[in-house]
Amino acid sequence: MKIGLDIMGGDFAPKATVLGAIEAYKALSAGQKLVLIGDKEIAVTILQENNVSPDNFEFVHTTEVIGMGEHPTKAIVQKPNSSISVGFQLLKEGAIQAFSSAGNTGAMLVGAMFSVKTIPGVVRPAMTTIVPKLKGGLGILLDVGANADCKPEVLVQFGVLGSLFAQSVYDIDNPRVALMNIGEEEEKGNILCQATYPLMKETTLFNFVGNVEGRDLFSEGADVFVCDGFTGNVILKLAETFYVITRKKQFKDEFFDRFNYEQYGGSPILGVNAPVVVGHGISSPEAIKNMVLLSKNMVESKLVDKIKQAFQ
């Protein structure tokens, strides 16, 4: 197995990404290789400064970088030698089995859809995030930003994607899928939720348990929470703030510590033909390490094959 890592992506790259690669290498098994995509000379210097042999990694040298503020589609087209573009080319060719980056999120989405492409039958890929639960364990929230506007049938597909992800990668048996809404009653919500509910209620593709409200997100009522990307991104950013506020207030609590994005590494793009993970722009070495390990777990669980089978 070869896992591609964009070492030029992120606010603190390439130092944070290379240091994260070092930690990820320590957790990988024999036969699992990390391919560092970016400026090889800089990467080797950082490795040597930390007394790590460059021979532990493979390198694909690139010099172009897609900046955080660049237009995703234009950047992918105009910078074919950027670390993100090259990473997706390697993924498309099968030279690597997974690709992750803490760089431009839009470019990662566009790159995934242009290179390995969307799985046949999937209308729109989705991005996920982890939701910690009060009594331990975790839930999955999707979409968290890939699709600001959605149709009812797309939300149903998100339920399928989230359920397979929870089951395959996090070993959640028969995941309970809920629709994020402003009330538990079947008739509640905006036009989108009202149209989606009966479709989810009728499906046999996942274990639908009804509507949930925002206050239910950290409870035991469901394992997968489905919403449009606009709503999901607002929830995600608010949840990230919980951790920041508790740190600023010097409030130590195990539950709020689990809001630390570093533990989860990144957000998978579900619904494309290969494992792709997008990291937070401010990713630390710890976050980079966990992003790589999440990529590994997605490969080992054969998640993409299971999604393909579900959408045949």
Score class of each variant (00 low, 15 high):
1 M>N: 11
2 K>I: 03
3 I>D: 08
5 L>I: 02
12 F>C: 09
17 T>Q: 12
18 V>E: 06
19 L>H: 13
20 G>P: 04
23 E>W: 02
24 A>S: 05
26 K>V: 10
29 S>C: 04
30 A>L: 12
33 K>I: 11
35 V>L: 13
38 G>C: 01
44 V>F: 01
45 T>Q: 15
52 V>D: 01
53 S>N: 07
53 S>Q: 02
53 S>I: 05
55 D>Y: 07
58 E>H: 11
58 E>S: 12
63 T>M: 03
68 M>K: 15
68 M>R: 15
68 M>A: 15
73 T>M: 02
79 K>V: 00
82 S>H: 00
88 F>D: 00
89 Q>I: 13
91 L>P: 00
94 G>C: 02
95 A>M: 11
96 I>W: 01
96 I>E: 01
101 S>V: 04
101 S>C: 05
102 A>Q: 00
103 G>Q: 06
105 T>L: 03
105 T>V: 03
105 T>H: 01
105 T>E: 02
107 A>P: 04
108 M>F: 00
109 L>E: 03
112 A>K: 03
118 T>K: 02
121 G>A: 01
122 V>M: 06
122 V>E: 06
128 T>Q: 03
129 T>Y: 09
130 I>E: 11
132 P>G: 13
132 P>C: 11
132 P>M: 12
136 G>V: 04
137 G>Q: 06
137 G>V: 07
138 L>R: 15
138 L>Y: 14
139 G>C: 14
141 L>M: 14
142 L>A: 01
142 L>R: 02
143 D>N: 07
143 D>G: 04
145 G>D: 13
146 A>K: 11
149 D>H: 14
149 D>F: 12
152 P>S: 08
152 P>L: 13
156 V>N: 09
156 V>W: 09
156 V>C: 13
157 Q>V: 07
159 G>W: 08
162 G>W: 02
163 S>K: 08
164 L>N: 01
164 L>H: 04
168 S>M: 04
169 V>H: 11
173 D>Q: 11
173 D>K: 08
173 D>T: 10
174 N>L: 03
180 M>W: 13
181 N>R: 06
185 E>R: 06
189 G>N: 07
191 I>G: 07
199 L>R: 12
200 M>E: 15
202 E>Y: 14
206 F>Y: 14
209 V>R: 07
210 G>Q: 11
210 G>E: 08
214 G>I: 09
215 R>M: 13
217 L>W: 08
219 S>G: 14
220 E>V: 01
221 G>C: 14
222 A>Y: 09
222 A>D: 10
225 F>V: 13
225 F>T: 11
226 V>L: 15
230 F>K: 08
235 I>V: 14
238 L>K: 08
239 A>R: 13
239 A>D: 15
245 I>V: 14
246 T>L: 12
249 K>W: 09
254 E>S: 13
258 R>L: 10
259 F>L: 11
261 Y>N: 13
262 E>F: 00
268 P>V: 01
269 I>H: 00
269 I>E: 00
269 I>P: 00
271 G>M: 00
272 V>M: 01
272 V>N: 00
273 N>R: 10
279 G>H: 07
279 G>F: 06
280 H>R: 10
284 S>C: 11
287 A>K: 06
287 A>F: 07
288 I>C: 06
289 K>G: 04
290 N>V: 09
293 L>H: 12
297 N>L: 12
300 E>C: 12
300 E>T: 15
304 V>T: 05
305 D>T: 08
305 D>W: 08
306 K>F: 14
307 I>R: 04
308 K>R: 06
311 F>D: 02
